[in-house]
């Protein structure tokens, strides 16, 4: 099939970007979206032009590196799918496709379609962990965890940290990302000792990074490739309220 691509090009973090038009022929429907971009890039290199820089790695939907906004939707039109797993059979001959980076103030564009998502790492560094040194653990079965809670914690832990939730949110709110981690640990007995500290410091960091406020529009959940539920945001609101009120600092 033949496609018209409009792709965001930006030389580096300081320069201004623009949408660039490309025609691409001979796209097979068995290609993944990123393989389609590979084909374009090979073509561009042969023409002596700089290929389109985009983030990608595992190409099986789990590393969370790929980060394209396709036709206005992070990761594109297929639900519960990262753009590396999106296949061209979801498009048809003659389609125009708009490809942009994940956008947010906290995700500055580095080049073309690559944005800097290190803010998410800093949120985790602020408290997204259970403080247990190596070899401090007790036997794995010492603390039973009900299957329901373990499953729910796993639902939250499924987050791949791609940042699509933030890219999709008109407010660039990172609540779903933060809530997933806060909830995972709040649901498990191992997470209890730091439960209050964790939510307070992660939310504080989230504010410092310049992410917006949640307005409960749930676009985050809709684009999440791992379908992390907004119920975790509600849970985090509860956790935060409780922790805030009891906080003595």
């Amino acid at each position: 099939m033949k496609l018209t691509l409009y792709i965001w090009r930006q030389k580096n973090a300081k320069s201004k970007g623009f949408m660039e038009k490309h025609q691409l022929d001979g796209v097979s429907e068995d290609m993944s979206f990123l393989e389609m971009l590979d084909v374009l890039n090979e073509q561009l290199i042969h023409e002596g032009k700089e290929p389109v820089a985009f983030d990608h790695d595992c190409r099986e939907g789990i590393c969370g590196t790929c980060s394209l906004t396709i036709n206005g939707t992070p990761h594109g039109p297929e639900a519960a799918t990262t753009c590396c797993q999106l296949h061209m059979r979801k498009f048809k001959d003659g389609d125009s496709i708009y490809i942009e980076p994940f956008r947010a103030k906290a995700f500055p564009v580095i080049k073309d379609l690559i944005s800097d998502r290190s803010a998410l790492d800093r949120i985790i560094q602020a408290g997204g962990f259970i403080s247990v040194n190596t070899n401090q653990a007790q036997d794995a079965n010492a603390l039973p965890v009900s299957k329901e809670k373990a499953d729910l914690a796993m639902d939250a832990a499924a987050c791949i940290g791609c940042g699509a939730c933030i890219a999709a949110c008109p407010n660039a709110s990172s609540m779903l990302f933060v809530a997933a981690k806060v909830s995972q640990f709040a649901l498990l007995p191992q997470g209890q000792p730091e439960r209050k500290r964790r939510v307070l410091s992660m939310v504080e960091q989230m504010h410092q990074e310049g992410f917006g406020a949640c307005t409960n529009i749930y676009e985050c959940e809709a684009v999440c490739p791992k379908q992390v539920s907004v119920r975790f945001i509600a849970q985090m609101n509860r956790e935060y309220m409780g922790a805030y009120m009891k906080n003595e600092e």
């Binding site: 259970i130 794995a140 039973p144 009900s146 499953d151 640990f185 498990l188 191992q190």
Partner: peptide
């Protein structure tokens, strides 16, 4: 498990 890895139960 101590780190909060949600293994199947």
């Amino acid at each position: 498990v101590a780190q909060g890895v949600p293994f199947a139960r």
